[in-house]
Design a protein around this nucleic acid. Structure first.
Lengths: 342, 342
DNA sequence: TCCTGGCACTCCGCCACGACGAGTGCCAAG
DNA sequence: CTTGGCACTCGTCGTGGCGGAGTGCCAGGA
């Protein structure tokens, strides 16, 4: 069956091109793979694959190079995700288990991912909106100054200052602390916000009006919970891997460097990945940024239901997809596990 | 006086080379500057400057390029730090005033610095050892589980968990809180550590032995205060400016990318800068890393006595030193001011 | 003593040329 | 449908000539 062989040819071309970084010709192909046919036959297949848009030639009479469409077919149908070796798994879990707090988990993950894939790694900080409230603490720094500490399930801690109109006695502070914790602890952020706001809503007739202090504290908490600034935070690592690109500075390195500066861009690149549990691959011009048409993104969600946040890598379209996908998947799993334990 | 003119020639060469990025010849020099002498005279001066090691020629019969020694002389004696314009000052203070917390200050600073200098900017997080303790809070999360929150003068907040042997009553908790705050608040970290350890030292005969809870809390606090991990944190920005280097990828961009990955390297580069109040310039091979012999570091300390931490930029030796030094100095001043206010 | 104009020289960067070779497309035969 | 052969294309690489920018040196002048 020729159709099958054609796909085998495409797979072989992708693999060779990824490892040699040079257009691959028919002769080299039959030498490196056991295809059982002659170069001439391969040439016919290549011509057909080019006709269908899976391959292209840099110049007449150079070898063939996969197109985005070719990589897409390869990723979707021709490759199987390589399982990580036991040693790699041990290295991953050993490296991540040493993390002491959320920041550390994220930083270690991004370095790990960069090291495993030898690409630029991106890890999004856990999304605020997916977290639940673990605890709220109120600390009197001064008679009219309160430190409000918000501790989330992901280990994130936010602190704000609240200025009060008047001094607050210790027992009043304790009562207030109990009330806000009762309302918010264990709730998802959105529900916690609603519950807190209910505390200060004009109660039914006869109930006591909410105190000024309560309002102030609730305001600060709601503001902290609504502050999606940190939703937009990402850690980036492995920029040194950009140096390996060597050629194609302008088409690959420059736009990537610019993207790294723009966290918004990185988030958007990762964005699609949190949907669905599997590793997402965006190849070349499939994405929203034409400057990044020479780069691919391999990403996935992590955390409970893989919906807490996303992590992944950005690299040239010419990359080892099976290996990269395996690494991204493995790191996401271990990060999810580590976060779950803490 | 020829000696004076020679220095003027060196200054002119540095300025022209920085702006054109090309070796500068004698003819171009007399055209662009009012030196009042002929190219031939300039040639003699250039030959003398080269003899003394301030200039070098890429090839026979190309123009001259400053050596590290030439830049050094330029920086030390021939340049005056350009004052920032009023508009720039407004932009800086406006940009930094919007910061909400320490993280934000650092992040904004690094972006600001990268933007002003169009170089890679590096800002070290405030050093733990230079901070004082603002407040310690103890929060009972569970009967035998305490959240210990350490708030520092720089706005940094560290939190740790302490596990207790037995339950602690509210009033006991309050007493413990008072004791640790009394001992540590307002103290520099080193003194705070000593004061806390004094609390649990076997007191003179007759005094009550320190409780298990006290020991546990002090242990956790001392550990948090001794954790110099975050002393080693830096924020990096403006990596996209590397793209402007264009040529000299291997000599400049690659080692810099690698340095950016290695925070230790960045810290060491900034390290020397915290001594003394002025802006420090390290040119080319003057520094400890020969891979970075094509780059210069312009850095200074910030915070009280400029000793809290350091910030600066890393760029090619061929850079606008006066402008860069002005920007680094200005940002450091504003950051110090902002931190002082909060 | 120092500056200046002139002049020969060096050497880089650029371009055109030609040989080489890898790789292709096509065709006719198996 | 596969295969070997063959002519063709085109990029790469080394060669050599040319122009120009820039230099060093020297002799004459202030």
């Amino acid at each position: 069956m020729q159709e099958e062989r054609r796909l085998a040819v495409l797979r072989a071309i992708v693999e060779d091109y990824v490892s040699t970084e040079e257009p691959v010709g028919s002769k080299a192909l039959v030498e490196r793979h056991q295809l059982g046919v002659s170069p001439a036959t391969i040439r016919n297949d290549m011509a057909a694959l080019e006709e269908e848009g899976y391959l292209t030639q840099p110049h007449t009479s150079a070898g063939r190079v996969p197109t985005d469409k070719g990589y897409r077919l390869f990723v979707d149908r021709l490759s199987t995700v390589k399982p990580m070796s036991a040693a790699e798994r041990r290295a991953i879990s050993g490296f991540l288990d040493g993390a002491v707090d959320l920041d550390d988990v994220v930083n270690r993950s991004v370095r790990l991912l960069a090291q495993l894939t030898r690409q630029v790694a991106v890890v999004q900080y856990p999304t605020l909106s997916r977290s639940t409230v673990r605890h709220i603490e109120l600390v009197a720094l001064a008679p009219t100054r309160l430190l409000v500490v918000l501790i989330l399930s992901t280990g994130r801690v936010e602190q704000r200052l609240a200025e009060l109109d008047g001094a607050l006695a210790d027992d009043e502070l304790g009562a207030l602390r109990s009330r806000v914790n009762l309302a918010a602890t264990g709730e998802v952020i959105a529900d916690a916000v609603a519950a807190l706001q209910a505390l200060v809503r004009p109660a039914e007739a006869g109930a006591p009006a909410p105190s000024r202090a309560t309002s102030a504290v609730v305001d600060v908490l709601v503001e902290a919970m609504s502050d999606h600034r940190s939703d937009e935070r990402v850690a980036v690592g492995g920029a040194a891997n950009l140096a390996r690109y060597g050629d194609s500075f302008d088409t690959s390195v420059r736009p990537l460097l610019e993207a790294i500066e723009e966290q918004v861009v990185l988030l958007r690149l990762l964005g699609e990945a949190t949907t669905g549990g599997a590793v997402t691959v965006r190849i070349g011009a499939e994405g929203p940024y034409q400057e990044l048409s020479a780069t691919s993104v391999v990403a996935t969600g992590y955390g409970p239901d893989d919906a807490l946040a996303a992590l992944g890598i950005v690299g040239p379209t010419r990359m080892d997809y099976p290996g990269t996908m395996a690494a991204v998947r493995a790191v996401a799993r271990y990060v999810s596990r580590v976060l779950d334990e803490s």
